[in-house]
Design a protein around this nucleic acid. Structure first.
Lengths: 260, 260
DNA sequence: CGGTATTTTGAGTATCGTCAAGGCCAGTGG
DNA sequence: CCACTGGCCTTGACGATACTCAAAATACCG
């Protein structure tokens, strides 16, 4: 599929190499590609916000975006992360309810909004893909809620790591398999993570090290976590869904297939 | 609009009396109405779940539904509430990620799923309405996340009350204006609220009474809160959006218009 | 190798979860 | 009409957890 996308890709916009876009008919992909412009942003740059008039639909190529809401007192609450293949932007004139900021240096693919919507009318498949994409985001938002509703920080950290293992497993370089252990790269710093999990960096640090002391994880570097006991993590998080949907075995299979 | 809906309503299914459905073309409404069946459930009844095969799209007429996920250890986390006019159900064969349970006695309007999806193909307006509906749910999920990411229970309670004032302001009997004060009816019990806010009933009680002691609210009954200082509540919640989107003045206008 | 940002640690305090008991209805049955 | 019951909300006391402030250690980047 990636090859097919490459063929129709004129602007170096590797649409379809990831995400649900791959399943679109070739014409649609070609048309999408023709209205696509690649843009890059440095870490920290605000890409889209309630006040920004940036009027495009975006698709993440590389890097991490964070969706956040800024509180009146300047604090920010992060309500989600966008990774490779995720889409964002305002459709159908709806005001953007979150602002989108680059968490790392990013490369996104931008579509002119009105032209994108025209394609939406033209290709029902695209329309439905968008719907499914949004439904996925909804599920993810609920996953975050589950994590946040855990009272202990330890549990929230555990849940976060699990999300990293499941949702971000197939994309990117977040997850490796080394000597039979899962190595997870935490894509954001402690400050962002604290905002995401509704806590403070100090508590995060303590939680990570508590999990390490109990042998559930190893902290190889602050942003590189080795998971020793996935089931124990799941128990810590109280997560039912994740562990049942995607067991350790499935993960291993996925990783072996990818590393081969 | 409500009248129009009434005209085409044969089964006593007051579609269009609320929600975005009102804006659909008459034919679509009529067809929807023809495949609609009114169902009632007692409080506590599980209406739809991952294992249930209940294969219909629903629209809430009256009462409150809660969307929840059950953890493997039996604990439940509530990830949202559905009120009058909200829709739910599985579209396009997607597995339901949450189970839906009646929080109060409810009356819902059920559409056969396959027939509903056929209408979806037939009326682009319906399709887009569904999309907007889902986008709304996404926003709401993010609002809940904001609330949950507040570290103190006081803040979460404050945020919850604000959501009640804004999102649920236009629907239902949740909000009244009496002697210049906002009277909010809390539609769920302390146990559910505790699950929703990721805390315990005892902490909730203390938080409510702390807010009352500080003069922000009055607790007329456990489920009937009078808001004395909306801005202070917003500050407590750290909420930016709510206070800016819908100020106290706007609320007053809405309420006066409705009570007239 | 130095300078900066990030992460970690420590000590003290506030908050919250926990357990246990008491109070407040609403409904029930005498 | 009143006592009784059960569910829910509240209160109190105590221990666990997390937030705050401050300082030290580590990682990161030229």
């Amino acid at each position: 599929m990636a090859q097919k996308a490459q063929q129709v890709s004129g602007a170096g916009c590797r649409l379809g190499g990831f995400s649900q876009l791959a399943e679109l008919p070739e014409e649609a992909l070609a048309e999408l590609d023709s209205i696509c412009r690649v843009r890059t942003y440095p870490a920290g740059k605000i890409i889209a916000g309630p006040d920004e008039e940036a009027d495009f639909i975006g698709c993440v190529h590389d890097g991490i975006l964070r969706m956040q809401k800024t509180l009146y007192d300047g604090r920010v609450a992060i309500v989600g992360l966008l990774v490779e293949g995720d889409m964002f932007g305002r459709v159908f004139e709806r005001p953007m309810s979150v602002s989108i900021e680059a968490a790392t240096d990013v490369e996104v693919c931008a579509f002119n909004r009105s032209r994108f919507e025209k394609l939406l009318m033209q290709y029902p498949e695209l329309d439905r893909m968008l719907l499914l994409n949004i439904l996925n985001e909804l599920d993810r938002a609920r996953d975050w809620m589950m994590i946040l509703s855990n009272q202990r920080v330890r549990g929230r950290v555990a849940g976060f790591l699990l999300i990293l293992c499941t949702r971000f497993a197939t994309v990117d370089h977040f997850l490796r398999l080394r000597e039979g252990k899962l190595i997870v790269k935490v894509p954001i710093g402690r400050t962002d993570l604290a905002h995401l999990l509704g806590t403070r960096t100090e508590s995060l640090s303590r939680a990570f090290h508590a999990l390490a002391d109990d042998g559930l994880i190893d902290i190889e570097k602050p942003d590189l976590i080795a998971i020793r006991d996935l089931d124990a993590l799941a128990a810590e998080a109280g997560e039912d869904d994740l562990s049942s949907f995607l067991s350790l075995n499935d993960l291993m299979k996925v990783l072996k297939a990818r590393d081969a």
